[in-house]
Structure formats: C-alpha cells, structure tokens
Simulated assay, not measured.
Amino acid sequence: MSNRRFSEMLNQWEEQRQQKQELVTVPVSVAKKDLERLQALADVYDQPLESIMADLMHAALAEAESSIPYVPGSRVIRVEDGEPCYEDEGKMPDYLDARHRAAHPEN
C-alpha cells in the first residue's frame, strides 16, 4: 500500500470518527408504509436502516431550507454591485433565529 493510499485511508477514518461524534439518537415515529419503504431502500442498497433514515432526513432538510422563499422587504440592508439588497421579510430570518436557539439552548 502506497503512503498516499494509507494517508487517504487514515483521513477517511478520521472523518468517519468525527461524523460519528456529531450523531445524536432521537426517537421518531413513522407511518408503517414509510417504514416499509425505508426498509426496502436499506435492503436494496445494503445500508443500515438508520443510515438511510439519516441520509434522507439530511437531504430533505437541505431541500426544505433552500426552498424557504425570500420575501423582499422595504428596507435596504446593503448594496452589492450597485444594486440594493432588501431585508428578508419571509420566514428565513425566523428560521435562522430558531436554528441558532436550537444550536445554543443555553442563551
């Protein structure tokens, strides 16, 4: 095994170790039909059910987050390339505040 391959393997192990440290277990209830679908994906792709659920949740959250619409307000908050950027009066500011509170519950 070349030094490069060995180094890549060690880096991959370290990345996996760090990812595992970030995992939290939460109880979740799902519809029986959804559990069947999840189990089918796990079987077809030879992955643990928990990994399939976590990956799907991660992808769904990223999609949901990017789908929160921007609602331009009347107040200009900055100018970029000569164009005014208006404050967002949609749900994104509230979402970002709630996300910050969830990440820092002691504040």
Rank of each mutant, 00 (worst) to 15 (best):
D43T: 15
L35R: 13
Q47L: 13
M53H: 04
M53S: 11
L49F: 12
Q16E: 13
Q12M: 06
D46T: 13
P93K: 05
Q16N: 11
G82F: 04
H100S: 11
D88T: 05
G73C: 01
S29F: 09
D46E: 14
I52F: 03
A31N: 13
P48W: 02
M57Y: 07
H100W: 14
C85M: 10
E63W: 07
R37F: 09
Q12P: 00
L61C: 14
V26T: 11
G82V: 04
V71L: 07
K32L: 13
A42P: 02
A64R: 14
A42Y: 03
R17Y: 10
A40N: 00
R78S: 15
S67I: 05
A103N: 12
E50G: 06
M92Q: 10
Y95I: 03
R75Y: 06
V79Y: 06
R75H: 08
D55A: 11
E50T: 14
L96S: 01
K20Q: 15
L61W: 13
A54L: 12
P27I: 02
A103K: 15
L49E: 04
H58P: 00
P27M: 04
R75G: 00
G90Y: 07
L56I: 06
L23G: 00
Q47D: 02
L96D: 03
A62T: 14
R101W: 03
S74I: 08
K20D: 12
A42K: 02
D43K: 14
D97T: 08
R37G: 05
C85N: 05
P84L: 06
E15Y: 07
E87Y: 09
L10S: 10
V79C: 01
E36W: 08
Q18F: 03
M53C: 11
S67Q: 09
G90P: 10
M57A: 12
P27C: 03
Y45A: 09
Y45N: 11
E36Q: 14
N11M: 12
A102G: 02
V28R: 07
G90S: 08
V71T: 10
I77H: 02
S74L: 09
E36C: 05
E83H: 11
Q39F: 13
V30N: 04
M57S: 07
A64P: 00
K32W: 08
P72Q: 06
D81L: 07
P93V: 03
A62I: 15
M53K: 05
I52Q: 02
D88Q: 03
V44S: 06
A59G: 04
D94L: 12
A59Y: 09
R78E: 15
Y70C: 02
A40P: 00
H100M: 12
E14F: 06
D55P: 00
V76M: 02
R101L: 09
H58D: 08
L56E: 05
E89R: 15
A62P: 00
L38H: 01
R17W: 11
A98L: 10
A60W: 11
D34G: 00
L41M: 15
Q47H: 00
E22I: 09
Q12Y: 07
D34N: 13
L35M: 14
A60S: 06
D81G: 13
V26R: 15
V76L: 03
